Amino acid sequence: MLVRDDLEACNRLIVDRMQSEVSLIPQLAAHLIAAGGKRLRPLLTLSAARLCGYRGARHVKLAACVEFIHTATLLHDDVVDESALRRGQASANALFGNKASVLVGDFLFSRAFELMVEDGNLEVLRILSAASATIAEGEVLQLITQNDTTTTEAQYLKVIEGKTAALFAAATEVGAVVADQPSARQAAMRDFGMTLGIAFQLVDDALDYSADQAALGKTVGDDFREGKITLPVLLAFQRGDDAERDFWRRTQEERDQGEEDLAHALTLMRRHGALDDTIERARLYGEQAIAALASFPDSAEKTALADVVTFVIERAR
Protein backbone atom coordinates (compact mmCIF):
# COMPACT_ATOMS: atom_id res chain seq x y z
CA MET A 1 0.00 0.00 0.00
CA LEU A 2 1.42 3.36 -1.09
CA VAL A 3 0.27 5.21 2.03
CA ARG A 4 0.86 2.40 4.52
CA ASP A 5 3.09 4.52 6.77
CA ASP A 6 0.60 7.38 6.65
CA LEU A 7 -2.28 5.07 7.52
CA GLU A 8 -0.36 3.55 10.42
CA ALA A 9 0.35 7.05 11.73
CA CYS A 10 -3.33 7.87 11.33
CA ASN A 11 -4.34 4.76 13.27
CA ARG A 12 -1.97 5.64 16.10
CA LEU A 13 -3.44 9.11 16.26
CA ILE A 14 -6.99 7.74 16.30
CA VAL A 15 -6.18 5.46 19.23
CA ASP A 16 -4.48 8.32 21.07
CA ARG A 17 -7.30 10.82 20.55
CA MET A 18 -10.12 8.48 21.52
CA GLN A 19 -8.64 8.15 25.02
CA SER A 20 -10.43 9.68 28.00
CA GLU A 21 -10.35 9.49 31.77
CA VAL A 22 -13.98 8.38 31.49
CA SER A 23 -13.27 4.70 30.85
CA LEU A 24 -16.50 3.93 28.99
CA ILE A 25 -15.54 6.33 26.19
CA PRO A 26 -12.40 4.54 24.92
CA GLN A 27 -14.01 1.18 25.68
CA LEU A 28 -17.04 1.87 23.50
CA ALA A 29 -15.08 3.75 20.82
CA ALA A 30 -12.53 0.94 20.56
CA HIS A 31 -15.32 -1.58 20.11
CA LEU A 32 -16.23 0.06 16.81
CA ILE A 33 -12.95 1.61 15.68
CA ALA A 34 -10.98 -1.61 16.26
CA ALA A 35 -13.65 -3.81 14.67
CA GLY A 36 -11.90 -4.16 11.34
CA GLY A 37 -13.32 -1.27 9.35
CA LYS A 38 -11.72 -0.60 5.98
CA ARG A 39 -10.56 2.93 6.92
CA LEU A 40 -11.72 3.85 3.44
CA ARG A 41 -12.44 7.52 4.13
CA PRO A 42 -9.12 8.36 5.83
CA LEU A 43 -7.36 6.35 3.14
CA LEU A 44 -8.95 8.68 0.58
CA THR A 45 -7.64 11.76 2.39
CA LEU A 46 -4.13 10.33 2.61
CA SER A 47 -4.11 9.18 -1.03
CA ALA A 48 -5.59 12.43 -2.36
CA ALA A 49 -2.95 14.47 -0.56
CA ARG A 50 -0.14 12.31 -1.97
CA LEU A 51 -1.66 12.41 -5.47
CA CYS A 52 -1.59 16.20 -5.24
CA GLY A 53 2.09 16.16 -4.32
CA TYR A 54 1.81 16.85 -0.60
CA ARG A 55 4.81 15.69 1.43
CA GLY A 56 4.05 17.05 4.90
CA ALA A 57 2.13 15.51 7.82
CA ARG A 58 -1.06 17.59 8.11
CA HIS A 59 -3.05 15.07 6.11
CA VAL A 60 -2.62 12.46 8.87
CA LYS A 61 -4.56 14.55 11.39
CA LEU A 62 -7.21 15.34 8.82
CA ALA A 63 -7.58 11.67 7.92
CA ALA A 64 -8.10 10.89 11.61
CA CYS A 65 -10.63 13.70 11.75
CA VAL A 66 -12.55 12.17 8.85
CA GLU A 67 -12.59 8.78 10.55
CA PHE A 68 -13.87 10.27 13.81
CA ILE A 69 -16.72 11.98 11.95
CA HIS A 70 -17.54 8.71 10.21
CA THR A 71 -17.43 6.68 13.43
CA ALA A 72 -19.60 9.20 15.27
CA THR A 73 -22.23 8.97 12.55
CA LEU A 74 -22.14 5.16 12.70
CA LEU A 75 -22.78 5.22 16.43
CA HIS A 76 -25.70 7.58 16.00
CA ASP A 77 -27.08 5.72 12.96
CA ASP A 78 -27.14 2.38 14.77
CA VAL A 79 -29.19 3.94 17.55
CA VAL A 80 -31.64 5.50 15.10
CA ASP A 81 -31.89 2.27 13.09
CA GLU A 82 -31.94 0.03 16.18
CA SER A 83 -29.21 -2.05 14.52
CA ALA A 84 -27.99 -5.17 16.28
CA LEU A 85 -24.89 -5.78 14.15
CA ARG A 86 -22.06 -3.60 12.86
CA ARG A 87 -19.00 -4.93 11.00
CA GLY A 88 -20.01 -8.50 11.77
CA GLN A 89 -20.31 -8.17 15.53
CA ALA A 90 -22.77 -6.79 18.06
CA SER A 91 -23.30 -3.06 17.56
CA ALA A 92 -22.20 -0.64 20.27
CA ASN A 93 -25.79 0.26 21.13
CA ALA A 94 -26.64 -3.43 21.54
CA LEU A 95 -23.76 -3.87 23.98
CA PHE A 96 -23.57 -0.54 25.78
CA GLY A 97 -27.04 0.92 25.28
CA ASN A 98 -28.40 3.81 23.24
CA LYS A 99 -27.51 6.59 25.66
CA ALA A 100 -23.83 5.66 25.83
CA SER A 101 -23.61 5.26 22.06
CA VAL A 102 -25.09 8.70 21.38
CA LEU A 103 -22.88 10.41 23.95
CA VAL A 104 -19.67 8.72 22.78
CA GLY A 105 -20.63 9.66 19.24
CA ASP A 106 -20.84 13.28 20.45
CA PHE A 107 -17.39 12.88 22.03
CA LEU A 108 -15.90 11.66 18.74
CA PHE A 109 -17.48 14.56 16.84
CA SER A 110 -15.83 16.89 19.34
CA ARG A 111 -12.48 15.20 18.86
CA ALA A 112 -12.87 15.66 15.11
CA PHE A 113 -13.42 19.38 15.52
CA GLU A 114 -10.39 19.64 17.80
CA LEU A 115 -8.28 18.11 15.03
CA MET A 116 -9.74 20.53 12.49
CA VAL A 117 -8.88 23.50 14.68
CA GLU A 118 -5.36 22.19 15.29
CA ASP A 119 -4.80 22.13 11.54
CA GLY A 120 -5.42 25.87 11.56
CA ASN A 121 -6.69 26.21 7.99
CA LEU A 122 -10.07 27.92 7.67
CA GLU A 123 -10.81 26.30 4.31
CA VAL A 124 -10.25 22.84 5.79
CA LEU A 125 -12.47 23.77 8.72
CA ARG A 126 -15.16 25.02 6.35
CA ILE A 127 -15.11 21.85 4.24
CA LEU A 128 -15.23 19.38 7.11
CA SER A 129 -17.71 21.30 9.26
CA ALA A 130 -20.01 21.74 6.25
CA ALA A 131 -19.77 18.01 5.56
CA SER A 132 -20.75 17.26 9.17
CA ALA A 133 -23.86 19.41 8.84
CA THR A 134 -24.72 17.86 5.46
CA ILE A 135 -24.44 14.35 6.88
CA ALA A 136 -26.95 15.24 9.59
CA GLU A 137 -29.27 16.77 7.01
CA GLY A 138 -29.05 13.61 4.90
CA GLU A 139 -29.94 11.42 7.86
CA VAL A 140 -32.93 13.61 8.75
CA LEU A 141 -34.07 13.61 5.12
CA GLN A 142 -33.86 9.82 5.13
CA LEU A 143 -36.02 9.81 8.25
CA ILE A 144 -38.60 11.94 6.44
CA THR A 145 -38.65 9.75 3.30
CA GLN A 146 -38.59 6.48 5.26
CA ASN A 147 -41.76 4.40 4.79
CA ASP A 148 -42.89 6.64 1.91
CA THR A 149 -43.21 4.83 -1.42
CA THR A 150 -43.94 8.14 -3.18
CA THR A 151 -40.27 9.08 -2.65
CA THR A 152 -38.66 10.06 -5.95
CA GLU A 153 -35.26 8.99 -7.24
CA ALA A 154 -34.16 12.61 -6.95
CA GLN A 155 -35.07 12.63 -3.24
CA TYR A 156 -33.29 9.31 -2.74
CA LEU A 157 -30.18 10.65 -4.46
CA LYS A 158 -30.24 13.71 -2.23
CA VAL A 159 -30.36 11.43 0.82
CA ILE A 160 -27.31 9.41 -0.20
CA GLU A 161 -25.39 12.49 -1.32
CA GLY A 162 -25.93 13.86 2.18
CA LYS A 163 -25.57 10.87 4.47
CA THR A 164 -22.68 9.15 2.64
CA ALA A 165 -21.15 10.96 -0.32
CA ALA A 166 -20.61 14.32 1.41
CA LEU A 167 -17.95 12.86 3.70
CA PHE A 168 -16.23 11.07 0.79
CA ALA A 169 -16.16 14.40 -1.05
CA ALA A 170 -14.77 16.29 1.94
CA ALA A 171 -12.19 13.56 2.59
CA THR A 172 -10.70 13.89 -0.88
CA GLU A 173 -11.10 17.66 -1.20
CA VAL A 174 -9.09 18.42 1.96
CA GLY A 175 -6.28 16.29 0.54
CA ALA A 176 -6.03 18.75 -2.36
CA VAL A 177 -6.38 21.76 -0.05
CA VAL A 178 -3.43 20.81 2.18
CA ALA A 179 -1.38 20.37 -0.99
CA ASP A 180 -2.23 23.96 -2.05
CA GLN A 181 -3.71 22.80 -5.34
CA PRO A 182 -5.58 25.32 -7.51
CA SER A 183 -9.35 25.50 -7.17
CA ALA A 184 -9.94 23.39 -10.30
CA ARG A 185 -7.91 20.52 -8.86
CA GLN A 186 -9.69 20.86 -5.50
CA ALA A 187 -13.03 20.68 -7.31
CA ALA A 188 -11.86 17.62 -9.24
CA MET A 189 -10.95 15.83 -6.03
CA ARG A 190 -14.30 16.79 -4.53
CA ASP A 191 -16.10 15.43 -7.62
CA PHE A 192 -14.10 12.22 -7.34
CA GLY A 193 -15.13 11.75 -3.72
CA MET A 194 -18.76 12.68 -4.30
CA THR A 195 -19.32 10.29 -7.21
CA LEU A 196 -17.36 7.53 -5.47
CA GLY A 197 -19.50 8.01 -2.36
CA ILE A 198 -22.73 7.77 -4.34
CA ALA A 199 -21.47 4.58 -6.00
CA PHE A 200 -20.51 3.19 -2.58
CA GLN A 201 -23.99 3.76 -1.15
CA LEU A 202 -25.75 2.37 -4.22
CA VAL A 203 -23.76 -0.85 -3.87
CA ASP A 204 -24.51 -0.95 -0.13
CA ASP A 205 -28.22 -0.57 -0.81
CA ALA A 206 -28.15 -3.45 -3.28
CA LEU A 207 -26.10 -5.63 -0.93
CA ASP A 208 -28.67 -5.17 1.84
CA TYR A 209 -30.91 -7.46 -0.22
CA SER A 210 -28.45 -9.69 -2.02
CA ALA A 211 -25.42 -10.30 0.22
CA ASP A 212 -24.98 -12.88 2.93
CA GLN A 213 -24.78 -11.62 6.49
CA ALA A 214 -21.13 -12.57 7.02
CA ALA A 215 -20.03 -10.63 3.93
CA LEU A 216 -22.24 -7.64 4.68
CA GLY A 217 -21.15 -7.30 8.31
CA LYS A 218 -24.67 -6.39 9.38
CA THR A 219 -28.05 -8.04 9.33
CA VAL A 220 -29.26 -8.66 5.78
CA GLY A 221 -32.62 -7.02 5.10
CA ASP A 222 -32.28 -4.26 7.69
CA ASP A 223 -33.33 -1.64 5.14
CA PHE A 224 -36.45 -3.64 4.28
CA ARG A 225 -37.44 -4.16 7.91
CA GLU A 226 -36.94 -0.45 8.68
CA GLY A 227 -38.86 0.67 5.61
CA LYS A 228 -35.95 2.55 4.04
CA ILE A 229 -36.87 3.55 0.51
CA THR A 230 -33.68 2.77 -1.38
CA LEU A 231 -33.17 2.54 -5.13
CA PRO A 232 -33.85 -1.23 -5.36
CA VAL A 233 -37.24 -0.63 -3.70
CA LEU A 234 -37.99 2.39 -5.87
CA LEU A 235 -37.24 0.52 -9.10
CA ALA A 236 -39.24 -2.56 -8.08
CA PHE A 237 -42.15 -0.36 -7.01
CA GLN A 238 -42.13 1.69 -10.21
CA ARG A 239 -41.95 -1.39 -12.43
CA GLY A 240 -44.44 -3.52 -10.51
CA ASP A 241 -48.14 -4.11 -11.08
CA ASP A 242 -50.88 -2.98 -8.70
CA ALA A 243 -50.59 -6.08 -6.50
CA GLU A 244 -46.84 -5.68 -6.20
CA ARG A 245 -47.19 -2.02 -5.30
CA ASP A 246 -49.70 -2.96 -2.63
CA PHE A 247 -47.08 -5.35 -1.25
CA TRP A 248 -44.52 -2.54 -1.03
CA ARG A 249 -47.03 -0.19 0.59
CA ARG A 250 -47.97 -2.82 3.18
CA THR A 251 -44.41 -3.79 4.06
CA GLN A 252 -42.70 -0.40 3.78
CA GLU A 253 -45.36 2.16 4.63
CA GLU A 254 -47.48 0.21 7.09
CA ARG A 255 -44.54 -1.91 8.32
CA ASP A 256 -46.84 -4.94 8.23
CA GLN A 257 -44.29 -7.65 7.55
CA GLY A 258 -44.43 -11.42 7.73
CA GLU A 259 -41.66 -14.03 7.75
CA GLU A 260 -41.74 -14.59 3.99
CA ASP A 261 -41.95 -10.94 2.94
CA LEU A 262 -38.21 -10.28 2.68
CA ALA A 263 -37.79 -13.27 0.37
CA HIS A 264 -40.74 -12.06 -1.71
CA ALA A 265 -39.24 -8.57 -1.90
CA LEU A 266 -36.04 -10.07 -3.28
CA THR A 267 -38.07 -12.07 -5.83
CA LEU A 268 -39.76 -8.91 -7.05
CA MET A 269 -36.45 -7.05 -7.27
CA ARG A 270 -34.94 -9.81 -9.35
CA ARG A 271 -38.04 -10.02 -11.54
CA HIS A 272 -37.75 -6.35 -12.44
CA GLY A 273 -33.94 -6.13 -12.57
CA ALA A 274 -33.89 -3.67 -9.66
CA LEU A 275 -30.69 -4.97 -8.08
CA ASP A 276 -28.78 -5.30 -11.37
CA ASP A 277 -29.83 -1.79 -12.40
CA THR A 278 -28.80 -0.36 -9.03
CA ILE A 279 -25.34 -1.88 -9.48
CA GLU A 280 -25.20 -0.58 -13.04
CA ARG A 281 -26.03 2.89 -11.76
CA ALA A 282 -23.16 2.51 -9.29
CA ARG A 283 -20.83 1.59 -12.17
CA LEU A 284 -21.81 4.77 -14.01
CA TYR A 285 -20.97 6.88 -10.97
CA GLY A 286 -17.72 4.95 -10.65
CA GLU A 287 -16.86 5.91 -14.22
CA GLN A 288 -17.54 9.55 -13.35
CA ALA A 289 -15.22 9.24 -10.37
CA ILE A 290 -12.38 7.91 -12.53
CA ALA A 291 -13.05 10.65 -15.11
CA ALA A 292 -12.61 13.25 -12.36
CA LEU A 293 -8.97 12.13 -12.06
CA ALA A 294 -8.23 12.90 -15.72
CA SER A 295 -6.51 16.23 -15.04
CA PHE A 296 -3.92 14.58 -12.80
CA PRO A 297 -0.80 13.08 -14.36
CA ASP A 298 -0.45 9.31 -14.31
CA SER A 299 1.11 8.06 -11.09
CA ALA A 300 0.95 5.19 -8.64
CA GLU A 301 -1.36 7.30 -6.45
CA LYS A 302 -3.75 7.93 -9.34
CA THR A 303 -3.85 4.22 -10.11
CA ALA A 304 -4.49 3.46 -6.44
CA LEU A 305 -7.49 5.80 -6.33
CA ALA A 306 -8.88 4.26 -9.51
CA ASP A 307 -8.44 0.85 -7.85
CA VAL A 308 -10.52 2.08 -4.92
CA VAL A 309 -13.37 2.74 -7.34
CA THR A 310 -13.06 -0.78 -8.70
CA PHE A 311 -13.03 -2.20 -5.16
CA VAL A 312 -16.17 -0.29 -4.21
CA ILE A 313 -18.09 -1.56 -7.25
CA GLU A 314 -16.79 -5.12 -7.14
CA ARG A 315 -18.15 -5.61 -3.60
CA ALA A 316 -21.42 -6.38 -5.41
CA ARG A 317 -20.01 -9.62 -6.83
Rank of each mutant, 00 (worst) to 15 (best):
D6P: 11
A9F: 01
M18A: 06
M18N: 04
E21W: 12
V22Q: 13
V22K: 11
A30N: 14
L43H: 15
T45V: 12
G53C: 13
Y54E: 01
F68C: 09
H76T: 07
D78G: 04
E82F: 09
A84R: 11
A84N: 06
Q89W: 00
A92L: 07
N93T: 13
N93D: 12
A94M: 13
F96K: 09
V102W: 06
L103D: 01
V104A: 02
D106K: 08
V117L: 15
E118S: 14
R126V: 10
E137F: 12
E139K: 14
V140A: 05
L141K: 08
D148G: 08
T152E: 13
E153L: 15
V159Y: 00
G162H: 04
K163G: 03
A169N: 02
V177F: 03
D180A: 15
A184N: 12
R185W: 08
A188N: 06
L196F: 06
Y209W: 08
A214M: 12
T219I: 14
G221D: 05
F224G: 02
L231R: 15
F237D: 10
F237N: 11
R239A: 15
D242N: 13
A243Q: 09
E244R: 02
A265F: 09
L266K: 15
T267I: 11
L268E: 00
R270H: 14
T278G: 02
T278I: 09
R283V: 07
I290S: 10
S295C: 14
F296M: 11
D298R: 13
V308F: 12
V312Q: 06
I313C: 02
E314L: 10
R315C: 00
R317T: 15
